[in-house]
Amino acid sequence: MEQTNFQLKKQDAQSHEWDVRLHRATRATREDWLGRGISYLCIGVIILVVASMLWFITSKGIATFTQNHVSLWKFLSGTNWAPDQGNIGALPMIVGSFAVTFAAAIVATPFAVGTAIFMTEISPNKGRKVLQPVIELLVGIPSVVYGFIGLAVVVPFMRHLVGGSGFGIISATFVLFVMVLPTITTMTVDSLRAVPRHYKEASLALGATRWQTVSRVILRSATPGILTAVIFGMARAFGEALAVQMVIGNAAIMPKNLISPASTLTSQLTTGIGDTIDGTLPNNALWSLALILLLMSLFFNALVRFIAKRGQLKNGR
């Protein structure tokens, strides 16, 4: 009796021990936890950084309206930018930014799409061996170099061509055109390559020529991707500061034409930030410009997502 009792106890203890062992996390599980922990930590830090930047720029940017009591409408629609005298009409810069952005995108898109078609449909081999490295090189050139080339080459050229001082939206457009070209081209190439092979085969099988296939099937089905590419290019153009600042002339006046000096949100920011004092109107006004830039880049991102969604629907049909 005692024997069995003892055995039972022993069994009990054994099963308990097994219980503990089975419920203990294995090494693999712990690795799993560690991995998850690390990635949560990284995500947490990134979210923290992004959130605090959003908060920082927003709180600084709205100080113009909350502390200095400038009306938002006056800020957005005013055309007189003289922060030292208390006038902060940001419209000239807003117009300038949009003008160079759209102009650069309009000029760059045909070239980018043409290059992409050549690289994917006409001569994929040369595309990979020659054009790809060239375009990657363009991406790697720092913007100050673009600006310097703009200052040394584009500005004098424009001066000879159209007169005036050579500084202006058109010079900025030229410089930005070269800067956004690689962005738009590489993304367009990706979207053209993503077109299902059987679309092309079916089109050719139906007797369509190569040009008909490219223009009516491939470009058509890659349209959402191309639009996304263009918007990414525009976002880059909108945010470019240094190169634009060097060739646009930085005159905070409403642009009347493409060849007179103008300014953009970014050029005004980089020109003015070192000469203003924290907490004063001129400084707050610059933060408000930064806030507009931030909102615009959020808008560009939202637009990209919207187009991607629409594209998916189209493919489903």
């Binding site: 930018w81 003289a82 005298q85 001082s165 500084f167 600042q245 002339g249 930085n250 005159a251 905070a252 006046i253 000096p261 300014s263 980089t270 020109t271 003015g272 070192g274």
Partner: peptide
């Protein structure tokens, strides 16, 4: 006030 013009930094 100065007339509005190009600005360099």
């Amino acid at each position: 006030d100065a007339v509005k013009s190009q600005e360099q930094d």
